[in-house]
Design a protein around this nucleic acid. Structure first.
Lengths: 134, 134
DNA sequence: ATCCAATATTAGAATTATTCTAAAATTATT
DNA sequence: AATAATTTTAGAATAATTCTAATATTGGAT
């Protein structure tokens, strides 16, 4: 592991996780001012390939990186804020249904976070960014 | 509804759905050779905003569009092929857990499709595109 | 320690997906 | 028909990401 890879791994594993490439780049620059964005991409891709970190993709938002811990995510449809949640493990059920070629699953729950609820007021009709109501 | 919007809506609702912007654009050009890519984006965004179609985002793959029907998706981690699946409805459980601000959820199941399984052979160690094993 | 090979980093170009802008065209309204 | 509103167009602009080729660094083997 190179110094960059090591530091990037640390950053992603910090509590204030769920960071974008750009955010990781900014933090890394504090330690290594000469580092280049491509290096961040290279190392994130490598860490991700080697399954040392996770990548979280939400439609309409830039990808974020996460430490490897079994949990799902809840995403505010208004502001995009992403929070870890603990929900029933569906692995066994899915394995039963989809057989041995099942790999893993990705569950994202969409809601309006408390902050946005306040801002939006009692009116629950604002779903500007909502994409799927079924 | 303009002719473009109407036709794009039709295309997305066809059986061979799950199409990318580019694929939709190509089909639309068969009917309207002079149409421009921006028009496809405009209309897809409009249809999506108005919730007449769904958008499917999978990490590493271009967005695809889908008709509005309640179902989840299973995605081959090797070739990206996307197929509709019917899985237990989690809405009630999620509502109970996350309250009235719950909007909807997104469940994607990742696996190796039969075609890729054949190609990859009995060796189940190839997970080139796998991103999350937890 | 020195040389070599392998790997990583850099800078910048290239690509891809998408949005934006302002003008032109189309459609709807009075 | 005149006006207003909306849509389309062309192309520029942006954002995210990958690629390329040169350079630098690192880790063995001698």
């Amino acid at each position: 592991m190179t110094k960059y890879e090591k530091r990037i791994y640390e950053i992603v594993n910090q509590s204030s996780s769920h960071m974008t490439v750009e955010q990781i780049y900014q933090i890394l620059k504090a330690d290594f001012p000469s580092v280049v964005l491509a290096t961040v991409y290279n190392n994130l891709n490598k860490l991700y390939r080697d399954r040392l970190i996770n990548k979280i993709s939400v439609e309409g938002l830039p990808d974020r990186y996460d430490r490897i811990v079994k949990h799902d995510h809840i995403v505010c449809r208004n502001c995009g804020k992403l929070t870890d949640i603990q929900f029933d493990d569906l692995t066994d059920t899915l394995k039963k249904q989809f057989g041995t070629d099942f790999l893993f699953y990705d569950l994202k729950v969409f809601y309006v976070c408390p902050d946005c609820r306040k801002k939006l007021g009692a009116d629950k009709s604002d779903h500007r960014h909502t994409n799927r109501m079924d």
